[in-house]
């Protein structure tokens, strides 16, 4: 039996929509953001429209039921039902959208704001574009010393950072549940792997309050670590972060 084309189109759309939800929310256990799903569906609808209408005959087949519904006198009852139901559904949709809820408003915030070119860290003005990790060079020059530095960084991390960022550096430390947004997951390929070491240095040293205005609202609870740690401790912790996760800091030089 051949399924009518209009039904086909609707089924495809519904399939894709629930497919996304099933795959992400259930199978992968990582919800798909509703804002993203809405945009995805917009373009899926566009794609389905394109495939179903590029041919004249098939288009006629597609719109035939709609046309019949509007024009065919024998479908009067159906027409009246549809004409009554559609505004009701639209009204209900509008109501659901506008209904006030206890959900806090969306906070749109840039997670990686562009750092300032220079920042005042440890009483010094540093140029973030040129700043380099003074210990990074040991990775090649003196691997043994490098290992030692990484281990020192690990101690700093465990004593200070793991409460929030977790002992696996996955952002799931004991305190993480109390924070919103939750602490950064350094294992993620989209976090420290995308950044230069100088960026991490700036972010760790100046913490949440050091974020530029465009990153507002400041809902980062990251402390201003320059008040608690020494400069070399921050650099060592950075070594540890990359070493443990296996990521490489972003650099503009080839190896």
């Amino acid at each position: 039996m051949k399924i009518p084309r209009l039904l086909q189109a609707v089924l495809v759309l519904a399939g894709v929509y629930y497919g996304f939800i099933i795959v992400f929310d259930i199978l992968l256990d990582a919800v798909i953001p509703s804002s993203l799903l809405a945009m995805y569906m917009f373009f899926v609808v566009a794609g389905v429209f394109m495939v179903f209408t590029y041919d004249e005959d098939q288009t006629r087949e597609l719109v035939a039921p709609i046309k019949a519904l509007v024009e065919d006198p024998s479908k009067r009852i159906w027409r009246n039902i549809v004409f009554a139901v559609v505004p009701l559904v639209a009204g209900a949709g509008a109501y659901m959208q506008m209904q006030p809820s206890f959900e806090a408003p969306l906070e749109l915030r840039t997670i990686h704001p562009a750092p300032p070119t220079t920042a005042k860290i440890f009483g010094k003005r540093v140029n973030l574009l040129k700043l380099e990790n003074p210990y990074r060079k040991f990775e090649k020059e003196d691997p043994e010393k490098f290992r030692e530095l990484v281990e020192e960084g690990a101690i700093v991390y465990i004593q200070n950072c793991q409460y929030c960022h977790g002992d696996k550096l996955d952002g799931k430390g004991p305190y993480a549940a109390g924070l919103n947004p939750t602490p950064l997951n350094f294992q993620d390929v989209g976090t420290i792997a995308q950044l230069q070491e100088s960026y991490l240095f700036w972010r760790i040293a100046t913490g949440g309050p050091g974020l530029p205005k465009e990153a507002a609202p400041w809902i980062s609870s990251m402390p201003v670590w320059q008040d608690f740690l020494k400069e070399d401790e921050i650099w060592k912790v950075i070594l540890y972060l990359y070493d443990y996760t296996g990521h490489h800091p972003r650099s503009w030089e080839s190896e």
Partner: peptide
């Protein structure tokens, strides 16, 4: 409305 309106410094 689709993207965040960031007011640059």
């Amino acid at each position: 409305f689709g993207i965040p309106q960031i007011e640059p410094a």
